[in-house]
Every structure is written in structure tokens, then in C-alpha cells.
């Protein structure tokens, strides 16, 4: 089959995918999103005859719009624009998770410094302020005091893009020095790892140590439900472990990523992650092809 890989930077993750596709004899077209112009009705020539486009755009804004245009042309794309739109925005993602009854950290959104300060004071210290758009643990603030809160809100109000004036405030979850990243296809885990760090941020991009992790039934159930809540697809679901005195050990889902990086997971797990991902993408392409044939 003919696979279009939409990209703006070829990371190790994309190299793994490209290698797997080529090894299986698929025709792969690399499509640099920076070169494309998206008409309202006619797809760019680069997408002609592709059976499936895999969106691997590094820039969230490009990912959101490009997937939207591709879907409008009727070109199958993974992930869907609906999933991309939800996962790209932390407020949307939190709403989707909460709406589906998936445990997620308590969160409030406020639009002024004064109302944001009220949220912060209600959560108490420490609490966390995050940008609604962003990744790799960047621009996240753990707020330990009122004076720190005032400074951060002032900086965000004065220096930031308008999106930084959407104050996304979250309870601080006292996780046990690690969180869990699960790569999943339509809610079925491909593999999981823990990301451990002395720092409160445990992103692999921040240099956290990674190790394979065996999911229990509760975690698997949450991954499936979180995936469904955001529209499904190839996702990175992030969980934190909680230990409530009454409820005991459990999990909370704090993020779902729609252009998930999996090189770190591939490096620590026994699972051949790119192979499993391409297995699933092949199924998606076949399903799209069957749907096209069945269409009147």
C-alpha cells in the first residue's frame, strides 16, 4: 500500500516507522508539511493516491490544520482531526477525560490573573500551572507560594501569546517520582514504561530514566477509556500513580498525546514498537480502503 508520512522533522521515531514500512514493501511518500498549500477542496498533489496518511507533524498547529484538511478531502489520516484537536489542547483533553469518567487531576481554567489566583489558592500549594498548548514538559510551573503564583501569572499575562492568558491550573499530584507512558492503538496497549526522575517533571524529553512497565487490569482499562474519550487512534497515554488513604493505589490520567514519540519505549521494552504500530496502521489503511469501496 501507499503510505504518506506527513512530517516537518524526521525524528528517530519517524525513522523507525519509515524503516518498518519499507521493510514490509509499502510505498512510502514523505510529505514535508512546510511545502504544502491546502486548498479548500483540492488536495495537494503530494497526497495523490495515498491509502493512508500518518500525521507526524512536530508542530501541533500544523498537525491540527493539516489533518482537518485531509479529512475534508476524504483522505484517510491517522490520527483523526477530532483526536488531534482534543489532544492538542490540555483544556479540551481534560474535559474529554472528565466527561468520560476517566480519573484525571482536578483542573480549573481561568482567564484573568485574579480568577487564576483564586483557583490557585483553592488548590493550595503546591499546585501546577500549564500552558494549554505545549509538550515535553516545557513552561510547566509548580507553584509553591503565593508570591511565586503572582510572578508567574504576571509573566504569563504580560509576555505570553494570548493562549498563555488561558490559565490552566491543576492540583499537584504527589506521584512516586515517576509516571507511566503507555503507547496504545485504539486503546490497546502496545507497551508501557515508567519515567523516573528526582525532578517533579518526569518527561523523557527532560532526561527522565525509563524502564519497562507491566500494566495491571486497572491501568489497561483506563488506557482504553482515555483513548475512547479523545476519539481513539495511535496515542501516548500518560498516567500517574496515586495512593489515597481511603481508596488505596490507583491511577489518574493526566495527558493523552496524539503524535506520540515512542523511541524511548522501543528502547526499553521487549516489544517491537514500530512493528506493532505498523501492524495497526496497515489495518487502518485496509479498513479505509474497504470503506471507500463500499461507499456509493
Amino acid at each position: 500500500m501507499k503510505i504518506g508520512v506527513l512530517y516537518s522533522r524526521i525524528r528517530h521515531d519517524e525513522k523507525l516507522l519509515l524503516g518498518e514500512f519499507r521493510e514490509r514493501g509499502h510505498e512510502v511518500t514523505k510529505i514535508d508539511v512546510r511545502d504544502q498549500r491546502f486548498d479548500l477542496t483540492e488536495p495537494p498533489a503530494a497526497f495523490a493516491d495515498v491509502d493512508l496518511v500518518v500525521d507526524r507533524c512536530l508542530a501541533t498547529s500544523r498537525s491540527r490544520y493539516a489533518t482537518r484538511f485531509l479529512a475534508a478531502y476524504g483522505i484517510p489520516v491517522v490520527n483523526s482531526p477530532e483526536t488531534a484537536a482534543v489532544c492538542a489542547d490540555k483544556a479540551e483533553c481534560s474535559l474529554a477525560l472528565a466527561g468520560a469518567g476517566v480519573p484525571t487531576p482536578r483542573t480549573e481554567v481561568a482567564f484573568t490573573k485574579e480568577s487564576a489566583m483564586e483557583s490557585i489558592e483553592r488548590f493550595g500549594y503546591p499546585c501546577v500551572v500549564k500552558p494549554v498548548i505545549g509538550s515535553w514538559g516545557r513552561l510547566l510551573a509548580k507553584i509553591d507560594s503565593r508570591s511565586a503564583a503572582e510572578a508567574i501569572l504576571e509573566h504569563k499575562s504580560t509576555l505570553g501569546h494570548y493562549e498563555h492568558k488561558v490559565f490552566y491550573i491543576q492540583e499537584f499530584v504527589a506521584k512516586p517520582g515517576r509516571d507511566i507512558r503507555v503507547v496504545a492503538t485504539d486503546g490497546e496497549p502496545v507497551g508501557a514504561m515508567v519515567r523516573s526522575s528526582e525532578h517533579w517533571l518526569t518527561n523523557a524529553a527532560k532526561g527522565a530514566d525509563t524502564e519497562q512497565f507491566e500494566l495491571d487490569d486497572e491501568a489497561r482499562d483506563l488506557v482504553a477509556r482515555a483513548s475512547e474519550a479523545v476519539g481513539g487512534g495511535l496515542l501516548g497515554v500518560d498516567l500517574m500513580e496515586t495512593n489515597d488513604p481511603d481508596a488505596g493505589h490507583s491511577y489518574t490520567v493526566h495527558e493523552v498525546n496524539h503524535t506520540v514519540e515512542f523511541k524511548a519505549l522501543d528502547g526499553v521494552t521487549d516489544v517491537d514498537v514500530p512493528a506493532r504500530v505498523v501492524d495497526w496502521l496497515e489495518g487502518e489503511a485496509e479498513a479505509a480502503d474497504e470503506a471507500a469501496v463500499a461507499a456509493p
Binding site: 524526521i10 508542530a59 501541533t60 509538550s135 515535553w136 516545557r138 501516548g236 503524535t259
Partner: peptide, 21 residues
């Protein structure tokens, strides 16, 4: 990497705020 045969290189774009996964 702009081209591989022959190899052509350009300075990589600066990190943008919305980059990530």
C-alpha cells in the same frame, strides 16, 4: 538534511513553542 545525494545541509529551524507530541 535537505538532500542526501548529494548531501545538502541547512541550519535547522529554531524550536517552536507548539512543537512536541
Amino acid at each position: 538534511v535537505i538532500d542526501v545525494d548529494p548531501p545538502v545541509l541547512e541550519t535547522a529551524p529554531e524550536l517552536e513553542e507548539d512543537w512536541g507530541e
